[in-house]
């Protein structure tokens, strides 16, 4: 279609009879980091689930690297390098940290670089290296997030979808994850980052989508970024000020 790495066009999707996404269109360019924010329950997670193939859209298309992946299986989409780290994800409770990471390099494309990727994950998150043998369900919330991002990195991502990686974490841990996510992007991996914290997003991404009522309510370019107050107004409505 275009030069975009990811192009999700006019997506309609929902659960059963309940529509969540209404004609939403987003794109990610090569090398770009895109932020996504908006009220809870307005479709951010549903959009990511649709892009990664967990949910079939009732209408619209998803193109990744020029190929139509709208109805591809999740396992094939991962194989292409479009990798989704879920929100509040406990992964595999009864598996150890190292075992989980090794398994995450599942697709042949990921297996080739698994050794290097594992070292990279441990360098990025030294806590995971300390807890190699520990079972996932005994990890703290922050460690689970690290494992979840670590798993996504083991899949040899060409585009990373991160769904609220700092949900429920302390400010200190949040800062730690922000640094890690920054490093991941600087190493050349484009990403979509979903977050509630706009400041956090502004520090890590080039462009923002405000998602409301299942559609893009506004697109914000960092270059012409409105000031903090304007974004707060958008988010909470002018009545909040």
């Amino acid at each position: 279609m275009t030069t975009s790495l990811l192009e999700a066009s006019h997506i309609y999707a929902g659960y059963g009879e309940v529509p969540v996404l209404r004609d939403i269109t987003v794109h990610v360019g090569a090398g770009e980091a895109v932020g996504m924010f908006g009220p809870n329950g307005h479709g951010k997670t549903t959009l990511l689930r649709t892009i990664s193939g967990l949910l079939r859209p009732s209408n619209g298309t998803v193109h990744f690297d020029g190929d139509d992946v709208t109805i591809a299986k999740p396992s094939d989409i991962v194989g292409r390098g479009l990798v989704h780290a879920q929100q509040g994800n406990m992964l595999f409770g009864d598996m150890g940290v190292a075992e989980t990471l090794e398994l995450a390099a599942f697709k042949p494309r990921a297996r080739a670089g698994a050794k290097a990727a594992l070292e990279r994950v441990y360098a990025l998150f030294p806590r995971l290296a300390e807890r190699r043998k520990q079972l996932a369900r005994t990890l703290s919330g922050g460690e689970r997030q690290m494992l979840s991002i670590g798993c996504a990195l083991m899949c040899a991502p060409r585009l990373l979808l991160l769904d609220e990686p700092t949900l429920g974490l302390s400010p200190r841990l949040k800062e730690e994850l922000a640094v890690a996510i920054g490093e991941i992007h600087e190493s050349g991996i484009p990403l979509i980052l979903v977050e509630q914290d706009v400041e956090f997003l502004l520090s890590l991404t080039d462009r923002l989508y405000l998602v409301e009522h299942g559609e893009v309510a506004r697109e914000i370019d960092q270059a012409s970024a409105p000031d903090h107050q304007e974004i707060m107004d958008m988010y909470f409505g002018t009545a909040a000020t």
């Binding site: 991962v78 994800n89 595999f92 398994l103």
Partner: peptide
Amino acid sequence: RTGRSLRAVGQNQDSAALIGIDV
């Protein structure tokens, strides 16, 4: 690898699919 993938599917289907396991 196959045996581990079966255990992974049993513990979390969505996560298993998202690391590339054909559920």
